[in-house]
Design a binder for these strands. Structure first.
Lengths: 198, 198
DNA sequence: CTTAGCAGACCATATGGTCGGTATCATTGA
DNA sequence: TCAATGATACCGACCATATGGTCTGCTAAG
Protein backbone atom coordinates (compact mmCIF):
# COMPACT_ATOMS: atom_id res chain seq x y z
CA UNK A 1 0.00 0.00 0.00
CA UNK A 2 2.65 2.48 1.10
CA UNK A 3 4.80 1.08 -1.68
CA UNK A 4 2.09 1.63 -4.20
CA UNK A 5 1.73 5.18 -3.04
CA UNK A 6 5.42 5.80 -3.40
CA UNK A 7 5.43 4.17 -6.80
CA UNK A 8 2.61 6.33 -7.98
CA UNK A 9 4.00 9.50 -6.52
CA UNK A 10 7.41 9.09 -8.02
CA UNK A 11 7.74 10.82 -11.34
CA UNK A 12 9.55 8.43 -13.63
CA UNK A 13 10.70 9.11 -17.14
CA UNK A 14 8.75 12.31 -17.56
CA UNK A 15 5.44 10.60 -16.95
CA UNK A 16 3.43 12.79 -14.65
CA UNK A 17 1.96 11.61 -11.44
CA UNK A 18 -1.59 12.14 -12.60
CA UNK A 19 -1.02 10.22 -15.82
CA UNK A 20 0.19 7.17 -13.94
CA UNK A 21 -2.80 7.17 -11.63
CA UNK A 22 -5.13 7.66 -14.53
CA UNK A 23 -3.56 4.72 -16.30
CA UNK A 24 -3.76 2.54 -13.19
CA UNK A 25 -7.44 3.35 -12.85
CA UNK A 26 -8.16 2.63 -16.51
CA UNK A 27 -6.34 -0.70 -16.32
CA UNK A 28 -8.07 -1.74 -13.13
CA UNK A 29 -11.46 -0.73 -14.46
CA UNK A 30 -10.82 -2.62 -17.69
CA UNK A 31 -9.96 -5.80 -15.83
CA UNK A 32 -12.93 -5.54 -13.50
CA UNK A 33 -15.23 -4.74 -16.38
CA UNK A 34 -14.12 -7.91 -18.10
CA UNK A 35 -14.99 -10.26 -15.28
CA UNK A 36 -17.64 -8.45 -13.28
CA UNK A 37 -19.55 -6.76 -16.05
CA UNK A 38 -20.95 -3.24 -15.94
CA UNK A 39 -21.99 -3.56 -12.34
CA UNK A 40 -18.72 -2.37 -10.91
CA UNK A 41 -18.57 0.25 -8.19
CA UNK A 42 -16.19 3.15 -7.95
CA UNK A 43 -14.84 1.75 -4.70
CA UNK A 44 -14.01 -1.57 -6.33
CA UNK A 45 -12.13 0.15 -9.12
CA UNK A 46 -10.39 2.55 -6.77
CA UNK A 47 -9.24 -0.26 -4.49
CA UNK A 48 -7.99 -2.32 -7.42
CA UNK A 49 -6.08 0.68 -8.70
CA UNK A 50 -4.60 1.50 -5.30
CA UNK A 51 -6.30 4.88 -5.10
CA UNK A 52 -9.02 6.28 -2.92
CA UNK A 53 -12.45 6.83 -4.36
CA UNK A 54 -11.88 10.56 -4.12
CA UNK A 55 -8.62 10.22 -5.98
CA UNK A 56 -10.43 8.37 -8.73
CA UNK A 57 -13.14 11.00 -8.91
CA UNK A 58 -10.47 13.65 -9.29
CA UNK A 59 -9.55 12.16 -12.65
CA UNK A 60 -12.99 10.99 -13.77
CA UNK A 61 -15.65 13.27 -12.45
CA UNK A 62 -18.40 10.68 -12.60
CA UNK A 63 -18.95 6.99 -13.04
CA UNK A 64 -20.27 7.44 -16.56
CA UNK A 65 -17.21 9.45 -17.52
CA UNK A 66 -14.98 6.67 -16.21
CA UNK A 67 -16.81 3.96 -18.11
CA UNK A 68 -16.69 5.97 -21.30
CA UNK A 69 -12.96 6.56 -20.87
CA UNK A 70 -12.43 2.84 -20.33
CA UNK A 71 -14.28 1.97 -23.51
CA UNK A 72 -12.30 4.51 -25.50
CA UNK A 73 -9.06 3.26 -24.00
CA UNK A 74 -9.80 -0.39 -24.72
CA UNK A 75 -10.81 0.35 -28.29
CA UNK A 76 -7.57 2.23 -28.77
CA UNK A 77 -5.55 -0.62 -27.30
CA UNK A 78 -7.30 -3.03 -29.61
CA UNK A 79 -6.55 -0.93 -32.66
CA UNK A 80 -2.89 -0.74 -31.70
CA UNK A 81 -2.68 -4.46 -31.09
CA UNK A 82 -4.30 -5.18 -34.43
CA UNK A 83 -1.91 -2.87 -36.22
CA UNK A 84 0.98 -4.89 -34.84
CA UNK A 85 -0.55 -7.96 -36.48
CA UNK A 86 -0.56 -6.26 -39.83
CA UNK A 87 1.52 -8.18 -42.32
CA UNK A 88 2.83 -5.63 -44.81
CA UNK A 89 4.32 -8.34 -47.00
CA UNK A 90 0.80 -9.21 -48.11
CA UNK A 91 0.59 -6.83 -51.04
CA UNK A 92 -2.97 -7.67 -52.03
CA UNK A 93 -6.37 -6.62 -50.58
CA UNK A 94 -7.44 -7.77 -47.15
CA UNK A 95 -4.39 -6.96 -45.04
CA UNK A 96 -6.32 -5.03 -42.41
CA UNK A 97 -9.16 -7.50 -42.39
CA UNK A 98 -6.73 -10.31 -41.73
CA UNK A 99 -5.08 -8.33 -38.97
CA UNK A 100 -8.52 -7.85 -37.44
CA UNK A 101 -9.35 -11.53 -37.69
CA UNK A 102 -5.98 -12.59 -36.31
CA UNK A 103 -6.31 -10.29 -33.33
CA UNK A 104 -9.83 -11.39 -32.52
CA UNK A 105 -9.29 -15.09 -33.05
CA UNK A 106 -5.78 -15.62 -31.82
CA UNK A 107 -5.31 -13.68 -28.65
CA UNK A 108 -5.02 -15.45 -25.33
CA UNK A 109 -8.36 -15.68 -23.59
CA UNK A 110 -8.02 -13.18 -20.77
CA UNK A 111 -6.44 -10.51 -22.91
CA UNK A 112 -9.14 -10.99 -25.49
CA UNK A 113 -11.83 -10.64 -22.88
CA UNK A 114 -10.45 -7.26 -21.95
CA UNK A 115 -10.44 -6.16 -25.56
CA UNK A 116 -13.83 -7.55 -26.21
CA UNK A 117 -15.59 -6.44 -23.06
CA UNK A 118 -17.13 -3.28 -24.55
CA UNK A 119 -18.85 -5.28 -27.24
CA UNK A 120 -20.01 -7.91 -24.80
CA UNK A 121 -21.37 -5.29 -22.47
CA UNK A 122 -22.68 -2.98 -25.11
CA UNK A 123 -26.31 -3.40 -24.18
CA UNK A 124 -25.42 -2.34 -20.67
CA UNK A 125 -23.42 0.57 -22.02
CA UNK A 126 -26.04 2.04 -24.29
CA UNK A 127 -27.40 4.32 -21.61
CA UNK A 128 -24.10 5.90 -20.73
CA UNK A 129 -23.69 9.15 -22.65
CA UNK A 130 -21.12 9.07 -25.40
CA UNK A 131 -20.54 5.33 -25.38
CA UNK A 132 -22.71 4.76 -28.41
CA UNK A 133 -20.89 7.43 -30.37
CA UNK A 134 -17.53 5.98 -29.38
CA UNK A 135 -18.47 2.51 -30.57
CA UNK A 136 -19.78 3.87 -33.84
CA UNK A 137 -16.61 5.89 -34.34
CA UNK A 138 -14.50 2.82 -33.72
CA UNK A 139 -16.60 0.84 -36.16
CA UNK A 140 -16.23 3.54 -38.77
CA UNK A 141 -12.47 3.58 -38.29
CA UNK A 142 -12.31 -0.10 -39.10
CA UNK A 143 -14.64 0.18 -42.07
CA UNK A 144 -12.45 2.94 -43.46
CA UNK A 145 -9.37 0.81 -43.01
CA UNK A 146 -10.94 -2.05 -44.90
CA UNK A 147 -11.92 0.30 -47.67
CA UNK A 148 -8.46 1.82 -47.98
CA UNK A 149 -7.16 -1.70 -48.10
CA UNK A 150 -9.18 -2.36 -51.24
CA UNK A 151 -11.32 -5.13 -49.87
CA UNK A 152 -15.03 -5.34 -50.69
CA UNK A 153 -16.51 -3.46 -47.72
CA UNK A 154 -19.70 -5.50 -47.56
CA UNK A 155 -17.91 -8.82 -47.48
CA UNK A 156 -15.42 -7.42 -44.99
CA UNK A 157 -18.29 -6.38 -42.78
CA UNK A 158 -19.77 -9.86 -42.73
CA UNK A 159 -16.44 -11.53 -42.08
CA UNK A 160 -15.96 -9.15 -39.15
CA UNK A 161 -19.29 -10.26 -37.70
CA UNK A 162 -18.31 -13.87 -38.06
CA UNK A 163 -15.01 -13.20 -36.35
CA UNK A 164 -16.75 -11.36 -33.55
CA UNK A 165 -18.96 -14.37 -32.92
CA UNK A 166 -15.91 -16.58 -32.64
CA UNK A 167 -14.17 -14.04 -30.41
CA UNK A 168 -17.11 -13.71 -28.06
CA UNK A 169 -17.18 -17.45 -27.46
CA UNK A 170 -13.41 -17.50 -27.15
CA UNK A 171 -13.34 -14.65 -24.67
CA UNK A 172 -15.81 -16.46 -22.48
CA UNK A 173 -13.88 -19.72 -22.65
CA UNK A 174 -16.67 -21.53 -24.42
CA UNK A 175 -14.51 -22.97 -27.17
CA UNK A 176 -11.37 -25.06 -27.31
CA UNK A 177 -8.20 -23.73 -28.91
CA UNK A 178 -8.70 -26.24 -31.74
CA UNK A 179 -12.17 -24.89 -32.49
CA UNK A 180 -10.90 -21.33 -32.49
CA UNK A 181 -7.97 -22.28 -34.69
CA UNK A 182 -10.26 -23.94 -37.21
CA UNK A 183 -12.64 -21.00 -37.29
CA UNK A 184 -9.74 -18.61 -37.78
CA UNK A 185 -8.45 -20.68 -40.67
CA UNK A 186 -11.86 -20.55 -42.32
CA UNK A 187 -12.09 -16.80 -41.81
CA UNK A 188 -8.63 -16.17 -43.21
CA UNK A 189 -9.48 -18.32 -46.21
CA UNK A 190 -12.49 -16.10 -46.80
CA UNK A 191 -10.25 -13.04 -46.84
CA UNK A 192 -7.97 -14.69 -49.37
CA UNK A 193 -10.55 -15.59 -51.94
CA UNK A 194 -13.89 -13.99 -51.09
CA UNK A 195 -15.43 -15.00 -54.41
CA UNK A 196 -15.82 -18.52 -53.13
CA UNK A 197 -18.10 -17.44 -50.36
CA UNK A 198 -20.75 -15.42 -52.09
CA UNK B 1 -53.42 -0.78 -10.79
CA UNK B 2 -56.62 -2.06 -9.26
CA UNK B 3 -57.45 -3.47 -12.69
CA UNK B 4 -54.13 -5.20 -12.89
CA UNK B 5 -54.68 -6.72 -9.52
CA UNK B 6 -58.07 -8.03 -10.54
CA UNK B 7 -56.66 -9.33 -13.78
CA UNK B 8 -53.91 -11.17 -12.01
CA UNK B 9 -56.13 -12.53 -9.29
CA UNK B 10 -58.72 -13.89 -11.67
CA UNK B 11 -58.13 -17.51 -12.49
CA UNK B 12 -58.50 -17.82 -16.24
CA UNK B 13 -58.41 -21.00 -18.24
CA UNK B 14 -57.05 -23.08 -15.43
CA UNK B 15 -53.93 -20.95 -15.16
CA UNK B 16 -53.29 -20.29 -11.54
CA UNK B 17 -52.79 -16.91 -10.06
CA UNK B 18 -49.19 -17.54 -9.11
CA UNK B 19 -48.28 -18.78 -12.57
CA UNK B 20 -49.55 -15.61 -14.18
CA UNK B 21 -47.60 -13.39 -11.84
CA UNK B 22 -44.49 -15.46 -12.28
CA UNK B 23 -44.85 -15.13 -16.03
CA UNK B 24 -45.41 -11.37 -15.83
CA UNK B 25 -42.27 -11.01 -13.77
CA UNK B 26 -40.19 -13.16 -16.12
CA UNK B 27 -41.40 -11.18 -19.12
CA UNK B 28 -40.76 -7.84 -17.50
CA UNK B 29 -37.33 -8.91 -16.32
CA UNK B 30 -36.47 -10.21 -19.77
CA UNK B 31 -37.40 -6.94 -21.39
CA UNK B 32 -35.52 -4.85 -18.85
CA UNK B 33 -32.51 -7.12 -19.09
CA UNK B 34 -32.41 -6.57 -22.82
CA UNK B 35 -32.22 -2.80 -22.69
CA UNK B 36 -30.77 -1.99 -19.29
CA UNK B 37 -28.31 -4.85 -18.90
CA UNK B 38 -27.64 -6.77 -15.72
CA UNK B 39 -27.88 -3.69 -13.58
CA UNK B 40 -31.60 -3.94 -13.02
CA UNK B 41 -33.12 -3.60 -9.58
CA UNK B 42 -35.86 -5.71 -8.08
CA UNK B 43 -38.03 -2.62 -7.76
CA UNK B 44 -37.69 -1.85 -11.46
CA UNK B 45 -38.71 -5.37 -12.40
CA UNK B 46 -41.54 -5.47 -9.87
CA UNK B 47 -42.94 -2.16 -11.08
CA UNK B 48 -42.75 -3.22 -14.71
CA UNK B 49 -44.55 -6.44 -13.84
CA UNK B 50 -47.26 -4.72 -11.81
CA UNK B 51 -46.28 -6.45 -8.57
CA UNK B 52 -44.74 -5.25 -5.35
CA UNK B 53 -41.17 -6.07 -4.58
CA UNK B 54 -42.36 -8.42 -1.85
CA UNK B 55 -44.64 -10.14 -4.32
CA UNK B 56 -41.72 -10.67 -6.63
CA UNK B 57 -39.57 -12.02 -3.81
CA UNK B 58 -42.31 -14.49 -2.99
CA UNK B 59 -41.77 -16.19 -6.34
CA UNK B 60 -38.02 -15.65 -6.65
CA UNK B 61 -36.41 -15.69 -3.27
CA UNK B 62 -33.40 -13.67 -4.34
CA UNK B 63 -32.15 -11.52 -7.15
CA UNK B 64 -29.77 -14.22 -8.34
CA UNK B 65 -32.58 -16.74 -8.45
CA UNK B 66 -34.65 -14.37 -10.55
CA UNK B 67 -31.84 -13.73 -13.02
CA UNK B 68 -31.17 -17.44 -13.36
CA UNK B 69 -34.86 -18.12 -13.98
CA UNK B 70 -34.94 -15.43 -16.65
CA UNK B 71 -31.97 -16.92 -18.44
CA UNK B 72 -33.53 -20.38 -18.36
CA UNK B 73 -36.83 -19.00 -19.56
CA UNK B 74 -35.31 -17.08 -22.44
CA UNK B 75 -33.25 -20.06 -23.55
CA UNK B 76 -36.38 -22.16 -23.55
CA UNK B 77 -38.29 -19.57 -25.56
CA UNK B 78 -35.47 -19.46 -28.04
CA UNK B 79 -35.43 -23.22 -28.46
CA UNK B 80 -39.19 -23.23 -29.05
CA UNK B 81 -38.98 -20.41 -31.56
CA UNK B 82 -36.21 -22.16 -33.43
CA UNK B 83 -38.18 -25.40 -33.55
CA UNK B 84 -40.98 -23.55 -35.29
CA UNK B 85 -38.49 -22.51 -37.96
CA UNK B 86 -37.59 -26.13 -38.59
CA UNK B 87 -38.33 -27.12 -42.17
CA UNK B 88 -39.09 -30.83 -42.12
CA UNK B 89 -39.26 -30.99 -45.90
CA UNK B 90 -35.47 -30.65 -45.95
CA UNK B 91 -34.65 -34.32 -45.75
CA UNK B 92 -30.89 -33.93 -45.68
CA UNK B 93 -28.46 -32.97 -42.91
CA UNK B 94 -28.47 -29.47 -41.45
CA UNK B 95 -32.15 -28.94 -40.71
CA UNK B 96 -31.60 -27.91 -37.13
CA UNK B 97 -28.57 -25.82 -37.97
CA UNK B 98 -30.58 -23.92 -40.55
CA UNK B 99 -33.39 -23.40 -38.06
CA UNK B 100 -30.81 -22.01 -35.64
CA UNK B 101 -29.36 -19.68 -38.26
CA UNK B 102 -32.78 -18.53 -39.42
CA UNK B 103 -33.88 -17.73 -35.91
CA UNK B 104 -30.73 -15.83 -35.05
CA UNK B 105 -30.42 -13.93 -38.31
CA UNK B 106 -33.99 -13.24 -39.23
CA UNK B 107 -35.86 -12.20 -36.14
CA UNK B 108 -36.99 -8.63 -35.68
CA UNK B 109 -34.50 -6.64 -33.67
CA UNK B 110 -36.20 -6.23 -30.32
CA UNK B 111 -37.36 -9.82 -30.12
CA UNK B 112 -33.89 -10.99 -31.00
CA UNK B 113 -32.37 -8.80 -28.35
CA UNK B 114 -34.51 -10.50 -25.77
CA UNK B 115 -33.45 -13.91 -27.00
CA UNK B 116 -29.86 -12.92 -27.21
CA UNK B 117 -29.54 -10.99 -23.98
CA UNK B 118 -28.14 -13.88 -21.94
CA UNK B 119 -25.28 -14.32 -24.36
CA UNK B 120 -24.62 -10.62 -24.54
CA UNK B 121 -24.60 -10.31 -20.80
CA UNK B 122 -22.84 -13.55 -20.12
CA UNK B 123 -19.76 -11.98 -18.64
CA UNK B 124 -21.98 -10.19 -16.18
CA UNK B 125 -23.85 -13.40 -15.46
CA UNK B 126 -20.87 -15.59 -14.75
CA UNK B 127 -20.89 -14.84 -11.04
CA UNK B 128 -24.51 -15.74 -10.50
CA UNK B 129 -24.77 -19.33 -9.31
CA UNK B 130 -26.18 -21.78 -11.81
CA UNK B 131 -26.09 -19.46 -14.80
CA UNK B 132 -22.95 -20.99 -16.18
CA UNK B 133 -24.39 -24.48 -15.92
CA UNK B 134 -27.59 -23.37 -17.62
CA UNK B 135 -25.75 -21.87 -20.56
CA UNK B 136 -23.63 -24.98 -20.93
CA UNK B 137 -26.71 -27.18 -20.81
CA UNK B 138 -28.36 -25.09 -23.49
CA UNK B 139 -25.25 -25.27 -25.62
CA UNK B 140 -25.13 -29.04 -25.21
CA UNK B 141 -28.77 -29.34 -26.21
CA UNK B 142 -28.02 -27.61 -29.49
CA UNK B 143 -24.88 -29.61 -30.14
CA UNK B 144 -26.89 -32.78 -29.60
CA UNK B 145 -29.54 -31.60 -32.03
CA UNK B 146 -26.96 -30.90 -34.69
CA UNK B 147 -25.49 -34.33 -34.14
CA UNK B 148 -28.83 -36.11 -34.40
CA UNK B 149 -29.40 -34.14 -37.54
CA UNK B 150 -26.35 -35.75 -39.11
CA UNK B 151 -24.37 -32.58 -39.66
CA UNK B 152 -20.63 -32.45 -39.00
CA UNK B 153 -20.60 -31.19 -35.40
CA UNK B 154 -17.37 -29.23 -35.72
CA UNK B 155 -18.51 -27.34 -38.78
CA UNK B 156 -21.90 -26.78 -37.18
CA UNK B 157 -20.19 -25.33 -34.16
CA UNK B 158 -18.27 -22.81 -36.22
CA UNK B 159 -21.29 -21.80 -38.26
CA UNK B 160 -23.14 -21.21 -35.01
CA UNK B 161 -20.40 -18.88 -33.83
CA UNK B 162 -20.58 -16.97 -37.08
CA UNK B 163 -24.34 -16.67 -36.76
CA UNK B 164 -24.01 -15.47 -33.20
CA UNK B 165 -21.68 -12.71 -34.32
CA UNK B 166 -24.23 -11.57 -36.87
CA UNK B 167 -27.03 -11.83 -34.31
CA UNK B 168 -25.18 -9.79 -31.71
CA UNK B 169 -24.72 -6.94 -34.13
CA UNK B 170 -28.29 -7.30 -35.31
CA UNK B 171 -29.68 -7.30 -31.80
CA UNK B 172 -27.87 -4.07 -31.05
CA UNK B 173 -29.03 -2.42 -34.26
CA UNK B 174 -25.55 -2.12 -35.65
CA UNK B 175 -26.35 -3.60 -39.04
CA UNK B 176 -28.84 -2.88 -41.79
CA UNK B 177 -31.45 -5.46 -42.78
CA UNK B 178 -29.58 -5.89 -46.07
CA UNK B 179 -26.35 -6.74 -44.29
CA UNK B 180 -28.11 -9.23 -42.08
CA UNK B 181 -29.88 -10.75 -45.06
CA UNK B 182 -26.64 -11.18 -46.92
CA UNK B 183 -24.90 -12.75 -43.94
CA UNK B 184 -27.80 -15.14 -43.45
CA UNK B 185 -27.64 -16.18 -47.09
CA UNK B 186 -23.96 -16.93 -46.74
CA UNK B 187 -24.53 -18.92 -43.56
CA UNK B 188 -27.35 -20.95 -45.09
CA UNK B 189 -25.16 -21.67 -48.10
CA UNK B 190 -22.55 -23.05 -45.73
CA UNK B 191 -25.10 -25.41 -44.26
CA UNK B 192 -26.06 -26.63 -47.72
CA UNK B 193 -22.61 -27.54 -48.91
CA UNK B 194 -20.12 -27.39 -46.07
CA UNK B 195 -17.36 -29.01 -48.15
CA UNK B 196 -16.85 -25.71 -49.94
CA UNK B 197 -15.90 -23.97 -46.77
CA UNK B 198 -13.19 -26.11 -45.33
C1' DC C 1 2.41 30.92 -2.04
C1' DT C 2 -0.15 28.63 -5.28
C1' DT C 3 -1.82 24.72 -7.36
C1' DA C 4 -2.10 19.87 -8.64
C1' DG C 5 -3.11 15.45 -6.64
C1' DC C 6 -5.12 13.01 -3.45
C1' DA C 7 -7.42 11.26 1.15
C1' DG C 8 -11.18 11.02 4.75
C1' DA C 9 -15.43 12.25 6.61
C1' DC C 10 -19.82 12.80 5.32
C1' DC C 11 -24.56 12.60 2.93
C1' DA C 12 -28.76 11.38 0.35
C1' DT C 13 -30.40 7.79 -1.96
C1' DA C 14 -31.00 3.13 -3.74
C1' DT C 15 -30.87 -1.55 -3.03
C1' DG C 16 -31.51 -6.55 -1.56
C1' DG C 17 -33.79 -8.75 1.73
C1' DT C 18 -36.78 -9.64 6.24
C1' DC C 19 -40.99 -9.57 8.93
C1' DG C 20 -45.60 -9.18 10.28
C1' DG C 21 -49.94 -8.84 8.46
C1' DT C 22 -54.01 -9.76 5.32
C1' DA C 23 -57.32 -11.08 1.81
C1' DT C 24 -58.57 -14.94 -0.92
C1' DC C 25 -59.14 -19.68 -1.81
C1' DA C 26 -59.32 -24.73 -0.93
C1' DT C 27 -60.20 -28.28 2.27
C1' DT C 28 -62.33 -30.51 5.97
C1' DG C 29 -65.36 -31.87 9.58
C1' DA C 30 -69.94 -31.52 11.61
C1' DT D 1 -74.41 -26.61 3.77
C1' DC D 2 -71.52 -24.02 6.30
C1' DA D 3 -68.24 -22.57 9.68
C1' DA D 4 -63.39 -23.47 10.86
C1' DT D 5 -58.86 -24.06 9.46
C1' DG D 6 -54.88 -23.87 6.96
C1' DA D 7 -52.37 -22.66 2.89
C1' DT D 8 -51.49 -19.46 -1.00
C1' DA D 9 -50.25 -15.15 -2.82
C1' DC D 10 -49.31 -10.85 -1.92
C1' DC D 11 -48.49 -6.04 0.37
C1' DG D 12 -46.27 -2.20 3.27
C1' DA D 13 -43.05 -0.97 6.60
C1' DC D 14 -38.72 -1.52 7.89
C1' DC D 15 -33.48 -2.34 8.08
C1' DA D 16 -28.54 -2.78 7.14
C1' DT D 17 -25.62 -1.92 3.72
C1' DA D 18 -23.66 -0.11 -0.56
C1' DT D 19 -23.20 3.44 -3.69
C1' DG D 20 -22.34 7.87 -6.38
C1' DG D 21 -20.99 12.08 -5.31
C1' DT D 22 -19.59 16.49 -2.37
C1' DC D 23 -16.83 19.14 0.68
C1' DT D 24 -12.96 20.15 3.43
C1' DG D 25 -8.34 19.68 4.18
C1' DC D 26 -3.63 17.95 3.79
C1' DT D 27 0.88 17.48 1.28
C1' DA D 28 4.34 17.99 -1.95
C1' DA D 29 5.96 20.23 -6.20
C1' DG D 30 6.96 24.37 -8.85
Amino acid sequence: MANDDLARQAVVGGIRNADRTRRAVLDAAGRLLADKGVSISLKEVADAAGVSKSGLLYHFSSRDELLLAVVQDINEQFRNTALKRLDLSENYPGKMLRAYVRTLCDESGSELLRFFAPSLLWSGMLHIPGASAEMEADEKWWDDQFNIDGFDPEIAHIICRFAEGVAAASALNEDTPEQIERARTMLLAMTEDPKNFL
